[in-house]
Design a protein around this nucleic acid. Structure first.
Lengths: 212, 212, 212, 212
DNA sequence: TATGAATGAGATTTCATTCAT
DNA sequence: CATGAATGAAATCTCATTCAT
């Protein structure tokens, strides 16, 4: 009858978000039940709708900020790249920096990123992985073209460029789902980035028949 | 009240399967609507239940056989491997054969495998990818141990073994979702398999501190 | 595709009736599934509708004849009674005859009567028990009035008359459901009929205040 | 979209229970339609599921408490019996007490007991009558054995014991379905209990051939 | 005789969402 | 802030029944 008094304002919202993270993680967005989330949080459905517009908004409230920060960080990284480093041959250390940064980002809010990257089917984020891939790819594409220009008679192998980028992102997702410890994650990723660099040298350029 | 009769026997079941493939592909298993499938096939919901036990059975009817054939093919391939090739250094051609076979398999029933590998959340097939990974990994693990034995002071890097295997499968999925043409798919995959082999030589073995 | 050839005509109908008896007995009329009956009989639903108009007709085909015979036998018994036996005091042997006859009737087609008396909810036979009770009661009522006439200052206790009759029928049903062996059933019933006769002497008549 | 609000809290639940009682009584559990119940109560089907878990829970909500109370009352009655009255010859008044108590119990919630005792097919209560019979019988059995011990050369007639007990319960059900007025019901039952006692003296013991 | 295919109405249940209080 | 009540649409599934072949 009478609403509970919370010592701390915002407590209920936190309880809801916590229960939502667990439910979304367990069942995925579509099959997750708002009823169950409310029950687990110890409140009624009405309360949820005070804090969140609808189911999608609840999901967004968990993943939006981390996602935006990730995208921003990536954009800044690649912008800096494109200005500073005309010389793609000097970018080895750079890959390592990127890996470190991303792993740290992802692990600073691991649950949210797991949700975003593996449980977003049915939400407006369901293409988030592709968007991140697209972001990296457009930057990598510039680099690939530079490489091709530097090697006459070659052109960019678009499929491999796309695949390598995708694999790169998938490697992060694999890390997130299989390795809890951030330090170890960074070690793994460092090795993987090295391996990806060799992929570039091996596969990105193909003979261009149209050139003489 | 009175059932419509079709000139051609079996037509309705095909229509249902066709509509189901499209709907599952578009919305995923959970959100796919049986009503919509029936409407698209031009029959009532009851008709569906004449041919299929339930929603899951409808899904199974599309993916089960291709999946079983794939698993059998993989098992036979790896069994042959383990008998014949003690010498892991001679397996380059083998990888290419495997890639060819798998691509051919997958493209002979592309829609079914897309369903199985990317839309099966909520069905008994939702771990199919992991099962295939597990299958390959257990075979690869034997090979990795052989390599480690041949190089004293080293041991298998389990994480990288798992990741490379996963990446291998994901590469097939990526192919399936991005490349319609089987011939081109085989070309891509051939190149990717080469690249994966270099991954083995680079990452599978790590120093073993416990050995002197 | 091609209909099975039966050596003996009517075989299918018998199979259907057999499966129907089992299913009706197990689940009751309402919950019984025609699909299951057809499957158990090894035929398709269409076949059922060649022999029977609908679900109710299938049920009727099992119970109608036995029921009619029972009703006829009862009517004949009571008609004979009312003509012959003005003297209700001489009817002890008669009760025993009735019991013997009914038990024999019921056990000659036990499954059908079990269906009729315990599984007919939802059919036009759902009041069969009441009808039989009504039949006996109207005959017993005459006898009871004769008794009352013979004992001035008394009248018939309608409730007890109805209840005793009901109990009488229920005793037969109880027998049918608990005792397989007909010989033992007759023994039990004989004893019960004796007991019921004492019920008549104890409870059927009550003082009639309206008489002086 | 927008929920209707009732001036009186709890009104809807009562309306649903009322409509449910009527529908279950008319059609029996299985054939009763939740749609109809909701329509009769003037609410949508969703509303029902706010108050009740499912169809069975709705039925339980009507009969569970009365049933539990009845069972408890019976258990207490028989427990008291077994402690106090070793002498079965002094239990006439006791039967009358039991009858009075039971009738009062049953009539204090007549509709619920009608449902429980005659419309529960398909629910977890479908064996409620048998359970009550079993409860009484196990207590009566002790008494019957005492009687047999007191009369050498006799043993308990198990069939008649079971039948008398069943008849006893059926008598209550008959009352419930035929007599609205509780006062009259008690009168009837009092007479019937007397009659049942004579049944005990007449039928419970039979000669024991195994004793000399 | 019997099949195989299909109907269409109905069943129960779940869900996100709304809103007066 | 939060509750408790209710909506209404949609979901999957079952059923007796029909009928051309």
């Amino acid at each position: 009858m009478s609403p509970r008094n919370h010592e701390q304002s915002g407590e209920t919202k936190e309880l809801l978000l916590k229960a939502a993270r667990a439910e979304f993680l367990e069942k995925g967005y579509t099959k997750a039940s708002l009823r169950k989330i409310c029950a687990d949080a110890g409140v009624t459905t009405g309360a949820l709708y005070f804090f969140f517009k609808d189911k999608e908004d609840l999901f967004s409230s968990i993943v939006e900020k981390p996602y935006r920060r990730l995208v921003t960080a990536l954009e800044e990284h690649f912008e800096f790249d494109s200005h500073a480093a005309a010389d793609y041959t000097q970018q080895e250390g750079d890959h390592d920096d990127l890996a470190r940064m991303l792993v740290h980002h992802l692990y600073s809010n691991r649950e949210a990123f797991l949700l975003l990257l593996t449980r977003a089917h049915g939400t407006s984020y369901e293409n988030a992985v592709d968007e991140v891939v697209g972001l990296m790819e457009s930057s990598y594409h510039v680099m690939a073209e530079q490489m091709a220009s530097a090697h006459p008679g070659t052109k960019v192998n678009e499929y491999m460029l796309h695949w390598l980028t995708h694999m790169n992102i998938d490697a992060f997702i694999h890390l997130l789902t299989h390795e809890c410890d951030e330090a170890k994650a960074i070690e793994h990723m460092s090795q993987i980035m090295d391996y990806i660099v060799t992929g570039w040298t091996k596969m990105i350029l193909i003979p261009d028949e149209t050139q003489k």
